[in-house]
Design a protein around this nucleic acid. Structure first.
Length: 263
DNA sequence: CTTAATGTTCCCCA
DNA sequence: TTGGGGAACATTAA
């Protein structure tokens, strides 16, 4: 469920409530979501006070009075404030006021103490400068779709927003990054910024079950122009949207607006 | 019954 | 060192 706009929305929905809260106790029951010693993790969290909550790439980072906690929502993870426990609730944070639940059917998400994975993330797409982005992009010999999904190149983009940004930029997902002109790379930079900014304004995309911490769905899915629209008419040229597989992910694009790169 | 799903990591190969 | 391809992780819905 979560790419940058969804994670940002979750963080914003928690920010008014979490800072200053004390974690009275924590419980974890999944060896996938919380690999390692779950009781030790719960023990480290008990008694901690939450300082702040922020987003880095697709990670939610909660700074504590001692140490920090990171939550990655994987594909189906949810952080819910005062929500109902289900068969897929794998984390429970009992606070001095309220309860924070981690719910994740597929258990691809991770809850980690002092995470080091975050150190390997590339720059934030809404913070990197144009020149830096263009230079980094054109230095890579990789399909542009695969590159934008690579979190060490750029942090936060996922399958939905890469497809949407490439459509907005008129770039084919199989185009080689190193062969994009400076002008086309610059257009991609702007398309990424506009797509992500608009998606955040619409509180993210709820394709199947994404909700923020208060259980509210996002609305950006109704504005998707290629993702999930295979066979439907392109909103710009009416050609049928095509779906192929790139980097093992369903990839949607307009064959007319995003021309096949010549090889 | 088979396939695909908003993600990441690891292994093998070029 | 870089990048591509495939498998794996667990669950559900179409």
């Amino acid at each position: 469920m979560p790419e940058l706009p969804e994670v940002e929305t979750v963080v914003r929905s928690l920010a008014p409530y979490l800072p200053g809260r004390r974690i009275l106790s924590a419980e974890f029951d999944s060896r996938f979501v919380t690999p390692g010693n779950r009781r030790a993790l719960a023990h480290k969290l008990a008694g901690r006070t939450i300082g702040s909550i922020r987003r880095r790439g697709k990670f939610i980072v909660i700074l504590l009075d001692q140490g920090s906690l990171s939550v990655h929502l994987g594909m189906t993870g949810k952080l819910l404030l005062d929500g109902e426990r289900t068969a897929h609730t794998h984390g429970v944070f009992t606070l001095d006021h309220g309860v924070l639940l981690y719910d994740d059917p597929r258990q691809f998400g991770r809850i980690e103490w002092n995470p080091r994975r975050i150190d390997k993330l590339g720059p934030e797409p809404l913070e990197i400068g144009l020149d830096d982005f263009v230079k980094r992009l054109r230095a890579r010999k990789s399909r542009v779709k695969a590159l934008l999904m690579n979190q060490s190149f750029l942090a936060g983009m996922g399958n939905i927003y890469v497809d949407e940004a490439l459509f907005a930029a008129g770039i084919h997902p199989l185009a080689m990054a190193s062969r994009l002109s400076v002008a086309r790379a610059a257009r991609l930079y702007q398309s990424i910024r506009e797509t992500l900014t608009l998606a955040i304004e619409h509180r993210g995309s709820s394709i199947s079950d994404y909700v923020d911490a208060s259980g509210q769905r996002g609305n950006f899915q109704i504005l998707h122009r290629v993702y999930g629209r295979e066979g439907e008419a392109c909103i710009q040229c009416a050609a049928a949207i095509r779906k192929i597989v790139v980097a093992q992910r369903g990839t949607h694009f307009c064959p007319r607006c995003q021309r096949e790169p010549r090889r």
